[in-house]
Amino acid sequence: MSAFTIYHNPRCSKSRETLKLLEEKGVQPTVIEYLQTPPSAATIIALSKGLALPIASMLRVKEDEYKALHLKAFTGTDEELAEIVSRHPKILERPIVVRESDQHARIGRPPEAVLELL
C-alpha cells in the first residue's frame, strides 16, 4: 500500500503537475481518478477533516455544475453537502493528496503545497 493517495484528474494541469512532483520526490501515490470513481460522502467528510477545511471550501465555485446546483446559497449540513459532492465529483477541488499515516491532506494548488506532507 502506498503511503499517499492522490485524488486525481488527468485532464487537469495542476493535478498532472502535482502527481509529477510527487513522483520526482520518490513518492508513488495510490491514484484515484475521482471522476471515474467518485469518493463516498464519508470519504469527502474525511478529506475535509484531513484538510482542516469545511466541505464548502473544497469546492470549485467557478464550475458550471456548482452554479447549476445553486451551492453558493446552500444552507444544509456538511453531511448533506458531502452527499451532493459524491454525486457531482466534478465540483470537488483537485488534486487532493492524503498522507495515509495520519490522514492529513493538502490541495495541490499550487502543486508545491503538497510537499508539506512529505
Results as ranks from 00 to 15, higher is better:
Arg109Met: 11
Ala52Gln: 15
Ala56Trp: 00
Gly26Val: 05
Asp78Arg: 00
Pro89Gln: 06
Ala56Gln: 13
Ser15Val: 06
Leu51Arg: 04
Gln36Arg: 14
Ile107Gln: 02
Glu80Asn: 05
Leu59Asp: 06
Arg94Gly: 04
Lys72Asp: 13
Arg87Ile: 00
Val27Tyr: 04
Gln103His: 14
Glu100Met: 01
Glu83Thr: 11
Gly26Asp: 02
Glu79Gln: 14
Met58Ile: 07
Arg94Val: 01
Leu81Val: 06
Ala46Phe: 10
Gly26Arg: 11
His8Val: 03
Ile44Gly: 08
Lys25Leu: 04
Glu116Leu: 10
Ala56Pro: 00
Ile84Pro: 00
Ala113Gly: 02
Gly50Ala: 12
Asp78Gln: 14
Gln103Arg: 14
Thr43Phe: 10
Ile55Met: 06
Leu21Tyr: 01
Leu71Asn: 06
Asp64Pro: 15
Ala52Gly: 13
Leu69Val: 05
Pro95Ile: 03
His104Gln: 15
Lys20His: 12
Ala68Arg: 07
Ser2His: 07
Arg11Tyr: 01
Phe74Leu: 02
Thr37Met: 11
Ser15His: 11
Val61Phe: 08
Ser86His: 03
Pro95Cys: 04
Leu92Lys: 02
Ala41Pro: 15
Ile32Phe: 13
Lys49Tyr: 10
Glu33Thr: 15
Tyr7Thr: 04
Thr30Asp: 13
Lys49Val: 13
Leu69Pro: 04
Lys62Phe: 04
Arg94Lys: 10
Ala82Leu: 02
Glu100Gln: 14
Pro10Ala: 11
Ala3Trp: 00
Lys25Thr: 02
Val27Cys: 03
Thr37Ala: 13
Thr43His: 12
Leu22Arg: 03
Leu51Ile: 05
Asn9Phe: 00
Ile55Gln: 12
Leu81Ile: 06
Glu93Ser: 07
Glu79Thr: 09
Lys25Ala: 13
Ser86Arg: 12
